[in-house]
Amino acid sequence: MTEKTLRSGALSPGLTGSPEHVKSSVSKFRINKDFLFEYKSVIALLIFMVAVSMISDSFFSTNNMLNILRQTSINAIIAVGMTFVILTSGIDLAVGSILALSGALAATLIGMDFNIMLVVTLTLAAGAAMGAMSGLIIAKGRVQAFIATLATMTLLRGATMVFTDGRPISASSGAASDAFSFIGSGYLFAIPFPIYLMAFTFLAAWFVLNHTRLGRYVYALGGNEAATRLSGINVDRIKLAVYSISGGLSALAGLIVTSRLASAQPTAGNSYELDAIAAVVLGGTSLTGGKGRITGTLVGVLIIGILNNALNLLNVSSYYQLIAKALVILLAVLVDTRSSRQS
């Protein structure tokens, strides 16, 4: 509103009032804009929550809140890895395939009576290695991230099909199967265990991005690769690191999914990369890299999680859910590009 008035006033000089008038409207406008810009995703989230709670009574119940967080945890954990990748101005399409293959690996190991700690460690390491493969192709082969991870995505999905023979692998029998089921379905102090995993992932990512060299280098690399290289930083190693992180976190999400279903599905994680990318972008991270915050990603995954939950509560059919989700994402990104163009 203020913006409109200001613009038209400035355009037709004859109508401009006294300088004081111009000044006051300008400064008011600036405060509003800065505030909105900084917190627009949080504000969107809050408005959204209020709106949903008005339509549905059950929305604000503790149960439903925990439910949302638990369901969100899988996308959240993947989105954290995606944030690292996108900050370096890359993209990781392979997260869903990594989730499926590491889930299948975990279920197999459980079936072979492996110790739970060993299963978790091996699965996470395997996920990181799969991510590293993308990283290697991108860094050493100088292939664009989109193409490189499109290839690894397809390759790993194929590998999953071969490995599982296209059939689910059960994780409900084996020495460690009870412990394994705790990962996705267990409760600690009346809070689902995946929520702890999600919280831990965010805290760790926040620490790495804001307080370590790796984090600083991730931002630098996304902002200006040539300058980062010329500052004596091993850019290839940073790329390798972010894709490994993304792979490892996809494997963690794979553990949760597999544990919850007590079996590994060969089609698990299909198109999960899209929700993760959407969450990162909703959180204000720029796809061109170098700009964004992990807290933004948290807000982004919550928006998507609550949206999914609300559409369920309102009994919207799953076909319409997709359309509604697409519209919200589009709207958010449009608002985002408009406001950043103005600043």
């Binding site: 620490f207 307080h211 370590t212 060299r213 600083r216 280098y217 931002y219 630098a220 996304g222 902002g223 200006n224 040539a226 300058a227 980062t228 290289r229 010329l230 500052s231 004596g232 930083i233 170098g290 700009k291």
Partner: peptide
């Protein structure tokens, strides 16, 4: 290739010498 424009003055200035400011656990 001199500066990373999206980073702050301090982050640019210390980019080459971050190692020096790192503690044992890797925290800057």
């Amino acid at each position: 290739d001199g500066l990373v424009l999206e980073l702050s003055v301090s982050e640019n200035m210390s980019l080459c010498s971050l190692k020096r400011f790192q503690s044992a656990i890797g925290k800057i």
